[in-house]
């Protein structure tokens, strides 16, 4: 690939990303009232998306091979437990991550 072709390829990726991010704001501009149905989606989509993002993070975990997803399960339980207990975002995230690192480096 020549430099020009590389630049065009990267520009296409930039364009595609911009479209996915700006499209809703172009279709439903701030000046006009947003349709009720879209407002409803704006309320119910985020919790569903957060669930989807957790699965997205875990998509390469194999239940039938390697460590069978056990370190992930333990670390998520620790993260969730810490969060229910103290409800300190940074503490829960750091605790879960450290437990995970110890598990994959020393145990599994």
């Amino acid at each position: 690939m020549t430099l020009t072709e590389q630049i065009i390829t990267i520009a296409m990726v930039v364009l595609g990303t911009l479209i996915t991010r700006f499209l809703p704001f172009l279709v439903f501009p701030a000046g006009k009232p947003t349709p009720k149905f879209v407002q409803y989606l704006g309320k119910v989509l985020p919790p569903a998306v957060f669930g989807m993002l957790i699965i997205y993070c875990l998509k390469n975990v194999s239940v039938f091979a390697g460590s069978h997803g056990i370190p992930e399960l333990i670390a998520i339980a620790v993260t969730a437990g810490l969060h229910l207990w103290k409800r300190q975002m940074l503490l829960s995230i750091a605790g879960g991550t450290i437990v995970y690192m110890l598990l994959v480096q020393l145990v599994f």
Binding site: G51, I54, I93
Partner: peptide
Amino acid sequence: EGLDFVMTAMFVVIF
């Protein structure tokens, strides 16, 4: 190794 779990942990907390 395993540091990337920080993203998973973050989404768990946000969820």
